[in-house]
């Protein structure tokens, strides 16, 4: 039994300490917006924030997240207001299948926190998620737009 603080709420979850955080979030906490794509830190579909930093949750043990602030895509909207990155995503009609987009958005939010006015090179460096549908052109435009918001 460990305690995880997800989106500001404490959850007691019955997992072994080495369970990947991804699966603890999806199956034990019950938040399915964070996706499984590869399980080996390659694709970024599972990206969440740990104390504000982007982390590929498939490659982090649940026990390592104890005592830290975990934010998932479901926790991005604050007080019912969608995050400016989510809004830009909607404005640019970014998602195709959408499966990668939770991770993509979480990565973009981190980038903008770090670099409020990112250059294309900053975006290239920070956005290393895979999108098999190929939405990168819209992702880039949406990030630039969110930076203006």
């Amino acid at each position: 039994m460990i305690e995880l603080k997800v989106n500001g709420k404490m959850h007691r979850v019955d997992v072994e300490p080495d369970t990947p955080l991804l699966w603890a979030i999806r199956e034990n906490v019950g938040l399915t917006g964070t996706k499984y794509g590869c399980g080996i830190a390659q694709c970024g579909a599972c990206t969440v924030h740990i104390n504000g930093e982007p982390v590929r949750s498939c490659a982090m043990q649940a026990s390592e997240a104890v005592g830290k602030e975990i934010t998932t895509i479901e926790g991005l909207a604050a007080n019912g207001m969608v995050h400016k990155v989510q809004k830009a995503w909607v404005d640019h009609d970014v998602p195709q299948c959408g499966y990668c987009q939770s991770g993509m958005i979480m990565a973009a939010v981190s980038l903008l926190k770090e670099k409020p006015k990112p250059t294309d090179a900053d975006i290239d460096a920070a956005m290393t998620n895979i999108c098999r549908c190929g939405t990168f052109q819209q992702v880039r435009a949406a990030i630039h737009d969110a930076a203006k918001a």
């Binding site: 399915t32 996706k35 989510q86 909607v90 998602p95």
Partner: peptide, 21 residues
């Protein structure tokens, strides 16, 4: 026109097969 299925794909609410409970 904008797609009809975008909002749920930006807030984690879209249900995919892996998410069925």
């Amino acid at each position: 026109v904008k797609r009809l299925d975008t909002v749920e794909k930006t807030n984690g609410k879209m249900i995919y097969g892996t998410d069925v409970v």
